[in-house]
Design a protein around this nucleic acid. Sequence first.
DNA 1: GGCAGAGTGTGGCTTAGGCGACAGATCGTG
DNA 2: CACGATCTGTCGCCTAAGCCACACTCTGCC
Lengths: 213, 213
Amino acid sequence: MNESDPRVRRTRKLLIEAFGALLTEKSFHAISVQDVAERATVNRATFYAHFEDKYGLLDSFVGDAFKEALEHRLPSDMAFSVRHLRILIVTVLEYVAQFNGRCASQRATDRDLEPLIQSKLQSVLHAFLLGWLQEVPPAEGAEPIAPETTATVLSWAIFGAGLDWARYSDVDTVEDRARQLLALLIGGTASVLNVSPRAPASATPTREAVGAR
Amino acid sequence: MNESDPRVRRTRKLLIEAFGALLTEKSFHAISVQDVAERATVNRATFYAHFEDKYGLLDSFVGDAFKEALEHRLPSDMAFSVRHLRILIVTVLEYVAQFNGRCASQRATDRDLEPLIQSKLQSVLHAFLLGWLQEVPPAEGAEPIAPETTATVLSWAIFGAGLDWARYSDVDTVEDRARQLLALLIGGTASVLNVSPRAPASATPTREAVGAR
DNA sequence: GGCAGAGTGTGGCTTAGGCGACAGATCGTG
DNA sequence: CACGATCTGTCGCCTAAGCCACACTCTGCC
């Protein structure tokens, strides 16, 4: 299954589009593999050559759309920078909010898909960040931090904030929320927790520092 | 090349749609087979499995669209009747007029395609009429007339009238023109030429009849 | 319980479509 | 004129997609 084969790309696209169209008409659970294949003018057997099952399709559907949204605002040739991180945050907040607003998972009967979808979104965000961070030259002087770690922290933090904002988006604007997030993620929690910044494990933490809880 | 194979239908559709899209951007002569194949996400070699060449595609493009327009207004389960013939006439008049109004053949550089297109439209109309007329039981008493003959007469007459109306559509409305056409085609020219109707070859024509001119 | 109906995965065989390469056309340009 | 560039048809080889059929699993219903 060579992804560069035009037939493969086309069939995948047809299936995903058909699925999207069906989702506007029925709940996820009411959609059968047959339905999707038929709508896509693709053989049912071919469906299984592309996706594990209905859930695999959902996975790709959600993931592709999100990836596309990210790459739309942040083309892959854009290097990492604080400015761009800010754009990323805004994009994620808006996407998550808009996703929770309408779309499939909002149907009462599909409520159980939310965890699936959310974990997918987070993992896509993780992958996106990782690809980005791996281009960044490691800072000198500071202790080395694996890009994987940074990607994990950022993806969970941003995504979580997205979910939260989706629920309470009337409290403040995207821009405002993004500003706060950015400050926290770049500057660390030190100033908020009233401890001195940049305290490595070996250094003496001011006051109770992290252990304060 | 089994026409019922979904792959075949899909590829054909893709090629024709791509061609239509390209026609809104460039002239027919500026469009290459490569362009069409690429836009349709189909291999160039596959193009030739479906169409003779660029002209073959044009042929199908024009023919399919016209056929679709006809079948849209006159589904195949509609039996022949004067009422339906009237609808057919209106449809053809409007289609031809609208076709000459915008669309490909209007580009100055594509003016030479008009005869090709016109003969295609006429032949599609002929085929449509023939399929229709073959369902009609032959009238009793009158001399037998092959449906092919009727289809030929009707298709040329209606199509020609369509072309004419396309040029001078400001003279009268479609409805009016259709009424006149219908009267002529059903009643024959006898009343206009002031001769007695239903004059078979063997009967004595009143006055100079056809030879009058 | 049993049975009919609809959906699901899977496998074997056939066929349309993708790929690369080829020999000609056609055409603008030095 | 020759040249490079671009497009055209065509061919052989390979692979994705279509088709049919089978063995399940559910689910509703008598």
